[in-house]
Design a protein around this nucleic acid. Structure first.
Length: 276
DNA sequence: GTGCTTGTTGGCCA
DNA sequence: GTGGCCAACAAGCA
């Protein structure tokens, strides 16, 4: 379920369970696809005995910093999940990576294996991390940058454009639909047809949804909610988008679900018109 | 059995 | 070279 707020939620979960602690053992499923492009044996060697020093989340990714210049990157794909289990935890079928400390077991679980673990050593973070686009909540994410991007992707449906990580890092399927619904823009509109006021609404609602999703799903400050998605208000599209016969929280009219750009997309036809 | 699934990538084509 | 579309990846669930 990994979009930007979920990545932050899972980062906090591992961080709180083990920051400042030393890794006593590392278990890997070496043949699991999540290790593609990395070397599980080197990862085990470097992390065993290393202390978890810090962590960060950006877009849909997480980076955990260990002593000795070791960095562990995690992308959760479609079905990945980070868990914090008690010490002595026995790995389950889809647990591909387990880091043990005296207090907890940090578990990466991913049944579909679209996720990815990357291991890096060096004084600074890896290049794939520093290349991640500026966050939606940063000052670099400007209305002008969004407008320029919409012009460049003029012929693509705006739904597809919102899923492009190079400009909207961390936006996934449900966030894209939530943003379009709040901005009252039909997902099939071609990006180049948006009027300036609509482009600006898209920018504003992108930031708003990012902020609300982070506060609601990942909690504020050190607070970690007990579970994902439990406190999402009924006023969001989120809580209605998958129900057959679901209704728009704003108009009370029936929602529509249809594929746009290869992804199931939900919108409120009474609110989001194709002819803008 | 069928038809879905909160993601990314590479190949093909205009 | 750029942009857009689509299938593939894999496993679980209804």
């Amino acid at each position: 379920m990994p979009e930007l707020a979920e990545a932050e939620f899972y980062r906090k979960r591992w961080h709180q369970a083990a920051v400042g602690r030393r890794v006593t053992a590392v278990l890997t499923h070496d043949r699991a696809k999540i290790f593609r492009g990395t070397n599980p044996a080197a990862l085990r060697r470097a992390l065993t005995g290393a202390k978890l020093l810090g962590s960060a989340a950006a877009a849909k990714q997480m980076l955990f910093r260990f002593g000795g210049g070791a960095w562990l990157g995690v992308h959760l794909g479609m079905s990945g999940e980070l868990r914090a289990e008690p010490a002595g935890y026995v790995p389950q079928k889809h647990d591909h990576l387990v880091l043990r400390t005296h207090r907890a077991a940090l578990v990466f679980r991913d049944p579909r294996m679209f996720g990815r673990v990357q291991f890096h050593t060096g004084a600074g973070p890896p290049a794939w991390w520093t290349r991640i686009a500026p966050p939606l909540l940063s000052t670099a994410f400007t209305a002008e940058a969004v407008a320029a991007f919409l012009r460049r992707r003029a012929r693509a449906p705006v739904k597809t454009v919102l899923l492009m990580q190079e400009r909207f890092p961390g936006v996934g399927n449900w966030m894209a639909d939530e943003i379009l619904w709040r901005a009252a823009i039909h997902p099939k509109r071609r990006a180049g047809t948006l009027r300036p006021v609509e482009a600006r609404a898209l920018w504003r609602e992108s930031r708003r949804v990012a902020r609300l999703a982070l506060a609601t799903i990942a909690g504020r400050g050190d607070h970690l909610p007990p579970d994902l998605n439990v406190h999402i208000p009924g006023s969001w599209l989120f809580n209605h988008r998958w129900q057959d016969g679901g209704r728009c929280p704003k108009t009370k009219q029936l929602l529509v679900r249809e594929e746009v750009g290869g992804r199931t997309t939900c919108w409120s036809p009474a609110r989001q018109k194709l002819t803008g």
